[in-house]
């Protein structure tokens, strides 16, 4: 059990840079498409790693199942809404940024 705790903490710490880089990317990237790219990394991988770490530390199977459902829900919801935003941006004829 102790080793699982340490392993879970390690996975959570590995998930943190994804959140931070998602935030930095949202602040620093030039246009909407690249910002979407940064955002989805934080959503999927960062939260996935945090949830994986918490699953490794969880006490009961009910908690594990609930965490897993949260992860699946966030995965579906964030990818669907990011897809909607990107499609509408293309419909609005927003040109993707390119290095001149």
């Amino acid at each position: 059990m102790e080793s699982f705790d340490v392993l879970g903490s390690g996975v959570i710490i590995m998930g943190l840079p994804f959140f931070l880089s998602g935030t930095v990317g949202l602040l620093r990237f030039p246009d909407i498409y690249t910002r979407l790219h940064a955002l989805t990394k934080a959503d999927n991988v960062g939260l996935g790693m945090i949830i994986l770490g918490l699953i490794l530390q969880a006490g009961s199977w009910a908690v594990v199942a609930k965490l897993f459902f949260i992860w699946i829900l966030v995965l579906i919801a964030s990818s669907a809404s990011c897809h909607l935003v990107a499609r509408r941006a293309l419909q609005k004829r927003i040109q993707p940024w390119s290095r001149k």
Binding site: L26, A42, I50, V74
Partner: peptide
């Protein structure tokens, strides 16, 4: 998009 990132961060914070 910022609001959505905030929601995801909120989920992570609540889980922790």
């Amino acid at each position: 998009l910022a609001a959505q990132l905030f929601g995801t961060c909120g989920v992570a914070i609540i889980l922790l």
